[in-house]
Simulated scan of single mutants.
Amino acid sequence: MKIHIIGGAGSGKSYISALLSQKLNIPHHDLDDIFWDNQAEVYGVKAPEEQRDQKLRGIVSQDSWIIEGVYRSWVDPSFSVADKIIVLMTPLSVQEERIWARYEERISGVVTSKKRETLEGVRNLLEWNKEYNLKKLSHFVENYENKEKIITVSSNLDIIELFVN
């Protein structure tokens, strides 16, 4: 099975991908790990496109996978071979609470992270995420050519019911 999960920041993509990976015994991959240069000295440096695209091609060539991320423009290789594309439309207010909670956990050291976020970065993420959810994600759902692959859900529980029960 090949599952691509797309949704805004704080929508629950990482959580549900890890859970589905465990339940279905399928490897999962976070697109942030190949999009961003996590070795950079500062937060927010993108990985070289060729390196990123090569890693994505390697993932999608596997027999089964779960890929999760917010990305749309460069992940066509994943969308084209995915059996299902799950669009996670968690309410924006829930996403914003999660973004703030995650930031606070990382800054306080409660959760270790390779991401070095700043307060300004989180504020920018909140603005970007609003635009992404209200315009870009709905545009993707409305205009994607293989609509039979798309499943739109508003919570992680919906995904569990689809694939595990």
Rank of each mutant, 00 (worst) to 15 (best):
Q95I: 01
V111M: 12
K149L: 05
G8F: 04
E105S: 13
H28V: 11
G10D: 09
N124H: 12
N129C: 06
E50H: 11
G58L: 06
Q22L: 11
K55I: 10
K23A: 10
I26A: 08
E105V: 02
S21L: 01
G8A: 12
K46W: 03
K23L: 11
I86C: 04
M1Y: 07
Q95W: 02
R102E: 06
V45W: 05
Q22V: 05
N129E: 11
I86F: 02
I159Y: 04
L119G: 02
R72G: 06
Q22K: 15
I150K: 05
I66A: 01
T90A: 11
V141A: 05
D53T: 05
L24G: 04
L157D: 14
S61V: 03
T90G: 03
N146A: 13
D37L: 01
G8E: 09
L125I: 13
K23H: 12
D37S: 00
K23T: 07
N146W: 07
H4M: 11
E105R: 14
L157I: 11
L56R: 01
F35Y: 15
E131N: 13
K23Q: 15
S113V: 06
S155F: 08
G109R: 03
V87I: 14
R123M: 13
W74P: 00
K130V: 09
V75K: 00
G12V: 09
I151S: 04
I160Y: 10
K46M: 10
L92V: 12
I59E: 04
W65I: 07
Y71R: 06
G69W: 02
S154I: 12
N146K: 13
S14P: 07
G69I: 11
W74I: 04
E49K: 10
D53F: 06
Q54V: 08
R102Q: 08
I66Q: 03
T152P: 02
R102V: 05
K136G: 00
V153S: 04
S21W: 02
M89A: 14
R52I: 03
H139N: 12
Q54G: 07
D76R: 09
I107C: 02
S11N: 08
L162T: 10
A101E: 08
W74Y: 11
E68H: 09
K115Q: 14
Y132R: 03
T118D: 01
R57S: 12
Q39H: 11
Q39N: 15
I107H: 05
R52W: 08
I59F: 04
D76A: 12
L88Y: 05
S14F: 07
V122Q: 13
N38M: 14
V42G: 00
I85H: 00
E50W: 06
R57P: 02
R52T: 14
K130I: 11
K114G: 09
S21V: 09
D37Y: 00
P27V: 10
Y144F: 15
E104Q: 13
W100L: 13
Q39V: 10
V94N: 10
Q51Y: 09
G121S: 10
N156A: 02
V110A: 14
K114N: 14
H4S: 13
E49L: 09
S14G: 15
S17Y: 02
W65M: 02
Y15N: 11
T152N: 02
Q95M: 15
I107T: 07
P91Q: 06
E148N: 14
A18V: 07
I16H: 00
E97S: 12
I85C: 05
L125S: 09
F140L: 13
I160E: 07
E68S: 12
S80A: 12
G10W: 06
R72W: 06
